[in-house]
Design a protein around this nucleic acid. Structure first.
Lengths: 273, 273
DNA sequence: TCTTCGGTCCGAGATATGTGAACGGTGACG
DNA sequence: CGTCACCGTTCACATATCTCGGACCGAAGA
C-alpha cells in the first residue's frame, strides 16, 4: 500500500481534492493580487513581497504586462483596465444584472436609499449593481472605497442568499471564510447564523440591523429561479432613522418583494427553457 | 556551437524586443480570452479552440478556476466576477474616474444625452464611465452590448486623446491597431487622421460626425495635466438631429470645455505634487 | 567620484509542464 | 436494454520551461 501519495505540500487541513494545477499561473495570480493590494509596485518590491527572486518577479510582471493585465505608469506596475473591460463584460452577461438593474434604479428612485443587487461567488457576495438614492447620506459611505466583494453573513443581501443555499454549502463557506465581526451586532457564531437563516426563510426576506455598519439597517430578499435555487438578492439599506416602524417592517419588505418578483419573471421568461 | 538557441517560436515579423516571457502564463491569458469570446466553454471545446491537448486545456481551466478567475456554471467554464471586482478597484483608483464622474453626471443631466469619460490603454480607448441622459434614444445603443474598449480613431473622445498624444505614439497605435472603418465616414487613412488631429488641436476639441455610428454625432475634449500630457477625455454624443447648429458648434463645446476645466483643477489639486 | 538601489539580462540546473493514452461516467440511439 | 460516442478526468514520462543567483548598467545621492 502506497503511503507516499500522502506526501504532498498542502498546508495541513486543505482538502486534497487536487487536480494538478499550474504553479506558474498561480504565482502570476499572486502577483496580480499583490499589485492590487499595494496599488502599484516595482520589481524589487514585488520580489520581497512574494519571496521571489528579482528576476522571477521581473519576468512575471513583464509577462502580465505583455498580456495586458498590468500596465506601467511612472515606472511602477499597476492593474490594467483590461480587468475593468473583462469585468464589465462578465457583469453585462449576467441575467441577474440585466434584468435586475431596471428594478434597482426604480427602487432607488422611490426610496431614495442605497439599493443593491448582489450575487454569490466562491462564498463571497458580489455587489453587481448599486445605486445611491437621492436621500442617501454620507457620500463617503461606499463611495470612496466601494466594496464590490464582501462577506455574506453581515449584510441583508448576503444573509438572504445564505438562507436559500444548501446547508452544507453554507457550512463550507463559514468554514473557509469564517464569520468576522464588523460591529458588535455581527453574527459571529455559526449556530446563531443558522437560526437566523431559518428565521429568514420563514419571513421570506432578511434584515440587517447594524451588523455591518453601526446605525445602518437593510432589508434584502432572495432572487430565485423556478427550481428554487437562489441566484442573488435585492436589498435596500439606509440609516436606522429612516428604516423604522412600518416602513421597515411592512412597506419596504412588500416593495422589495414585489421588485424581486418582477425580476424573477423576467429571468424565467428569458431563460429559453 | 549551439545554433539551437535561435529556434524560437515568434511568428515572423515579431519585433524581438524580448524580455523573456512566461509561456504558461500567456497560454492562461489566451484561455481567459477564449472563454470571454465564447461566453462559456468546456474542456474539449477549449482544447480545439486553442490547439491544446485536452489534458492541457483541463489543467489550465482548473488552475484558473482555483485562482478565482473562472467559475463553473452548469459544467461549463465562464469568466468569474473576480474580474469585475478587480476592474472596479482599478476604476475607482483612477483619479480621472473619481474626479470626472460628478461632471459626467451633471453634463448628462443637463444635456440629456450620452456622456462619457474615456482614457487610453495600449492604444485603445477605455470607457471609464458613461451615463445615458434622459433624452437619449435607443436603449439598445450600447445598452445590451456596451463597448468598454474601442478604437480611438472613430470616436470624438478617442480623437481628442490622439490629438494630444506624441505623434510617434499615434503612429505606433495606427500601425498596431489599424484604422478599421465603422461607417463610410470613418477616417481610414493615416494622413487624413493626422490632418484631423491637427484641426482638433487648433480647435481644442474633437468632433465625430457619424464616424462610428451613422447619424450619431459627438463632441469630445481632452483632459490634460499641467505638463500638457493627455489623461483622457470627456465627450457627449447624441443623434445628429439633436447635435446641430449653435448647440453643436458653440454651446456644447463651451459647456464641455468648462467641465473639463473643473476636472483638471480637481486633478491638479489632489495630485499631491 | 564612489556607493546604493532598482531594473535588466544570462546560463544552468531542477522541476513543472505538456502530452497521449487510458479510464469511467453519462446521454443518445438503435 | 445494450452499444456507441463523447466528455471530463487521471497518470507517468520526456523535455521544455521556469526559477534562481549573479553580473551588468544607469540613475540618484552623498
Amino acid at each position: 500500500m502506497w503511503v507516499e501519495a500522502f506526501e504532498w505540500n498542502m498546508t495541513a487541513g486543505d482538502t486534497d481534492d487536487s487536480p494538478r494545477t499550474l504553479k506558474t499561473v498561480s504565482v502570476a495570480a499572486d502577483v496580480v493580487e499583490a499589485v492590487r493590494e499595494h496599488g502599484s509596485v516595482g520589481v524589487t518590491e514585488l520580489a520581497d513581497l512574494l519571496d521571489l527572486s528579482k528576476s522571477t518577479a521581473y519576468i512575471h510582471l513583464k509577462t502580465l504586462e505583455k498580456n495586458g493585465f498590468l500596465v506601467q505608469r511612472d515606472g511602477e506596475y499597476e492593474i490594467a483596465f483590461k480587468f475593468f473591460v473583462i469585468g464589465e463584460y462578465a457583469r453585462h452577461r449576467s441575467p441577474l444584472y440585466r434584468y435586475g438593474k431596471p428594478e434597482v434604479d426604480e427602487l432607488a428612485e422611490e426610496t431614495g436609499q442605497y439599493t443593491h443587487i448582489v450575487t454569490e461567488e466562491n462564498g463571497f457576495g458580489i455587489n453587481l449593481y448599486q445605486v445611491k438614492g437621492e436621500t442617501s447620506i454620507s457620500d463617503d459611505y461606499q463611495s470612496e472605497k466601494p466594496q464590490h466583494r464582501d462577506h455574506l453573513h453581515y449584510t441583508a443581501s448576503g444573509k438572504a442568499i445564505l438562507a436559500y443555499l444548501p446547508r452544507d454549502r453554507v457550512e463550507e463557506i463559514v468554514e473557509s471564510h469564517g464569520l468576522p465581526a464588523r460591529t458588535d451586532n455581527t453574527i459571529t457564531n455559526p449556530d446563531d447564523l443558522f437560526a437566523e437563516l431559518e428565521a429568514i426563510r420563514e419571513r421570506g426576506y432578511a434584515y440587517n440591523d447594524g451588523e455591518e455598519i453601526e446605525g445602518f439597517r437593510a432589508i434584502g430578499a432572495p432572487i430565485r429561479n423556478p427550481k428554487g435555487e437562489v441566484l442573488g438578492s435585492l436589498s435596500v439599506s439606509g440609516p436606522a432613522s429612516f428604516m423604522r416602524d412600518e416602513r421597515f417592517h411592512e412597506d419596504l419588505p412588500e416593495r422589495i418583494t414585489r421588485a424581486v418578483n418582477v425580476i424573477e419573471v423576467s429571468l424565467n421568461m428569458n431563460s429559453h427553457a
